[in-house]
Amino acid sequence: MTEHAHQHGEKAHVVGYGQYILIWAGLMGLTGTTVALAGIELGRWVIITALTIASVKGFLVLNIFMHLRSEDRTFRLFVLVAGVVLLIFICLTFFDYAFR
């Protein structure tokens, strides 16, 4: 973050249309995969595979569509902290709930 960047406002990181379309195709593919897997009896693995695929999709949207990849490191750290806080919420809830 230099003075230069402040004064000129936008520091253009232009992402080409092609790369967005590629990521979109990947997201569509992952959606097809997760729907196809839901038709198979995976037992307890169902929720794990579904959430893993959803996380990969979320990661792609955050990194490419939401430009986190080209943002300042501070942004990525913020998002990481927010995600970890949510994870702590979920874990602590289960520590409470599972041992009642």
Partner: peptide, 25 residues
């Protein structure tokens, strides 16, 4: 950019809602 960020967040939330409600059976 701000409007787009909001829109992508709405997308990400659906990315998690979809499998949790429609797929895990």
């Amino acid at each position: 950019e701000a409007g787009a960020l909001y829109w992508h967040l709405v997308d990400i939330i659906w990315i998690f809602l979809f499998p949790l409600f429609y797929l895990v059976h």
